[in-house]
Design a protein around this nucleic acid. Sequence first.
DNA 1: CTCGGTTTGTTCTCGCGTTCACAAACTCCT
DNA 2: AGGAGTTTGTGAACGCGAGAACAAACCGAG
Lengths: 235, 235
Amino acid sequence: MTERTPSEASRDIPEATVARLPVYLRALTGLSEAGTATCSSEHLATAAGVNSAMLRKDLSHLGSYGTRGVGYDVEYLRYQIAREIGVTQDWPVVIVGIGNLGHALANFSGFRSRGFRVVALLDADPRRHQEVVAGVDVRPFSDLEAIVHEHGVAIGVISTPAPAAQDVADHMVAAGIRSILNFAPTVLAVPPGVDVRKVDLSIELQILAYHEQRKALGAAAVERPVDGALEGRPA
Amino acid sequence: MTERTPSEASRDIPEATVARLPVYLRALTGLSEAGTATCSSEHLATAAGVNSAMLRKDLSHLGSYGTRGVGYDVEYLRYQIAREIGVTQDWPVVIVGIGNLGHALANFSGFRSRGFRVVALLDADPRRHQEVVAGVDVRPFSDLEAIVHEHGVAIGVISTPAPAAQDVADHMVAAGIRSILNFAPTVLAVPPGVDVRKVDLSIELQILAYHEQRKALGAAAVERPVDGALEGRPA
DNA sequence: CTCGGTTTGTTCTCGCGTTCACAAACTCCT
DNA sequence: AGGAGTTTGTGAACGCGAGAACAAACCGAG
């Protein structure tokens, strides 16, 4: 096993590794712009904020790029990771729901610079159809299927309010989109074969709040130890 | 072990469970608004998009709320989870970096409705200091420490461009903030005891792109089976 | 009061992900 | 050429999380 033929190695990369590859890619881009030609796993791992052993294992899943005793060629590794992720090609993307968040997403330069091209902005509200955001005009949601077929869109972004999200997702799937990035705070039901990733801003804050509360509780427990049953039980 | 005193049970909840509690909370709020008084683990799990066994195990970590043969009291469980997360109290939040994304975050109603209150918007650019966003006026970044102390801010949100993020984080930590939600595409270095969660929009898209490429490759392999060494290579 | 039906809480098992530790391999210096 | 120093790639150990399965507990009918 562990053949170094790309198509061999590119089989079954662990999900956790896939989620970190973009971080490595970003770190490598930074090193490249800084003029670094070669880097060790330790160096790159620090830049990516991970353990060096984990980095090496992650990279080993895509092949044996790297030279023992030397390190990794920044440009070469960057290209290999980009190819593995698939961002050497351009991905046309459509954004549905042009509210505050949709505006921000449409203007986000990080998409363009990382292989994604926003080909259309859609909104159900006719009052938004006059607008032009980030050089792209907002079109009616009913144009979705035509746009998907015209540009070969494979990835859709949902930034609508929660109640509209499922309907939008259904239409996306019907139009042939198989990858959805969902910013609406709702659980989406999609048929098998369709990937959904969700980004929920308030969930992240709530996780922080939990730990923050924990810290405060821990500090309070030092002052006044123990004591449990207090707030529970209306039943 | 497994005492049901809240303070006992609230020790060491697995991180994976913590990340799902907000989802359950959202699902319960939905059920509550729909007028549902009681629900089974199966019902709630479906609403939250998870397995019922996992839901029960998650809930068991915070205590034995729920009645065998009956299910969970929606309101009661909702309160217990909210208390466990810490969103029964209000968390003052400060947002730094009022660009497109900062605007969207400041206007995001989901924060307010889930126990978070934006007490200040900060930006280093003086041209933005005249603006009023979502009823809050944009103030200079140098006001950070004063605001943190005045309002007892424990959570900071960074929505600046990447190059400014580390500096902002440093000032936040210096001002006493111990929880940071970072939207800038950079790895933040913070001292131990400070929690950082990151949301990177382009990383999510890249993960989708990887799987999308995979699907396309798989489909191609069906047409033309086998054969390995093709795309790799610029040694 | 007893019994059948239902649902929770928990135990057990399995697989994945992370970390450690080391052999293999490369460079550079003598 | 040979050896010392470095760094990668990987095998093995460990811990955590997910799912299946089951006993305990509760309700309601008779």
